[in-house]
Write a protein that binds this DNA or RNA. Structure first.
Lengths: 255, 255
DNA sequence: CAGACCACTGTGGTCAGACCACAGCATACC
DNA sequence: GGTATGCTGTGGTCTGACCACAGTGGTCTG
């Protein structure tokens, strides 16, 4: 193990251990950087490197100034870190856009299937009001493609939110953010945005209808068509690639 | 937008832009920290904060010393960052263990269904040799629970790897790592490890058999039983919770 | 007395400089 | 020719300093 004696890891582990033990909870403020440095016996710069990581990962929010709202506060904003991670990995060719789309498909299919099953079970009331509202909002005339796509994303997130799984919500948000650039470029290359958006709206309604009728199989199929259809049209088709298991050298030397 | 004028963000954006434009690729070395700082007109500590983020996210590997292998190298090791992110979010109560398990279930079900479909299509040869080898390894007598669980994880990752989706591979690895602690504790509380491991092995063989016979539905069902069964037995049951969409305050103030 | 004003204080954000540990490389020495 | 040794470039860390900013509380003025 060798314990990785770098100072900033010590800080990270200290915060993680405080979180696990309950000494720190969402909403709490971390000690000032200078205090933390003195307590842990490291330099302030090492503390700052650890805090930077926590900030990007979405665990703390930092603010300058004085008063109760200043300093580093534990926040738990999972989506931010997921977006950053996926976006950078896509940029570094660690993740293929195609894989991102296929993963989104897998998650969203599971979400709507779960929702449909929950509607069937009827033991718990499924709250689809947010999704319905967004669908109405998307019918407003004169929406730009960017506005439409933003509402589209919120619609899909509303479904994930209704399923009550925060991990899937955050992951789907990150997956979508990470290919935001490609989606926008793809939208501009469509033959007719009006036709495509009309089709997307139709499919949205079909998905919601399948969920509300408790038909998990139909919901799955509709989602599949919806997502793979759009990306196929924008030349980012989520075809299943090289199943032969070719291995790229990822530069991992760790044991 | 306000552009967030912090210096380390500038560094991060510079690296990301270099990645997107192809000026940087996996295997390349970043300039030395001091050079990067001078080029971007920021202090070395700001550069270091950005590099620290990239390192935790799994995008660079840093090494001291001189020579070609020293410095910060672009590596693309997605799983590392995913593990760190999920683990910390679980620690901070941003993610519930239950949601982690449900997400793993959704992804793995999609993986085996994809594999079964690919076997059916037969256009591409599905390479399940790695999974088969791991299954054999797990039959060795005298494995400790920790050794068995490690092989178990590698078996599930081998399936994901066979599906060719690196995003799912990395995500599943992260999901599993993030609840490693709970899995180990759960294993110790089982009434009989011998019985449980025997059942897990049987289920593993069933999963592989369903995939090899091209039966996507059976593969899905078997995986569901395998994963939810284990976590139910270790009191971490992946029941579908509060579908009423209760909202926690996550401390997000961003617009 | 009420209000506006302002200096103080504590916080993160940044930089510059210094030193160390380490790994490769070139040179000198045997 | 082979080995030993010092040089050099790299990240890792610490210290100290300064800035910008936002509350806080006191002070001054009407």
């Amino acid at each position: 193990m060798a314990e990785d004696r770098r100072a900033w890891r010590l800080v990270l582990e200290s915060v993680e251990s405080d979180l696990l033990s309950g000494r720190l909870s969402p909403g709490d403020r971390l000690p000032p950087e200078r205090t933390l440095a003195a307590d842990l016996g490291v330099g302030r710069s090492s503390v700052r490197e650890a805090l930077r990581v926590l900030e990007v990962l979405g665990l703390v929010r930092t603010a300058v100034g004085s008063g109760p709202s200043s300093g580093a506060v534990i926040v738990s904003r999972p989506s931010g870190g997921m977006s950053a991670l996926l976006r950078l990995q896509v940029a570094a060719h660690g993740f293929a856009v195609n894989d991102i789309v296929r993963t989104r498909l897998a998650l969203e299919a599971a979400v709507v299937a779960d929702l449909a099953d929950a509607v069937n079970a009827a033991s718990a009331s499924v709250d689809l009001a947010a999704a319905r509202d967004l669908l109405s909002a998307m019918e407003a005339p004169g929406l730009t493609d960017a506005e439409f796509l933003a509402l589209d994303q919120r619609f899909h997130l509303a479904l994930a939110e209704a399923s009550g799984n925060q991990v899937i919500v955050a992951t789907m948000a990150g997956l979508r953010d990470s290919i935001e650039h490609y989606v926008r470029v793809g939208a501009r290359q469509l033959p007719s945005w009006a036709d495509t958006s009309a089709r997307l709206m139709r499919e949205h309604r079909d998905i919601l209808a399948a969920v509300e009728s408790g038909d998990a199989t139909a919901a799955r199929a509709t989602v599949r068509q919806h997502i793979s259809g759009y990306y196929a049209e924008t030349n980012l088709s989520p075809r299943t690639p090289e199943l032969t298991g070719q291995h790229r050298d990822l530069g991992l030397t760790q044991p």
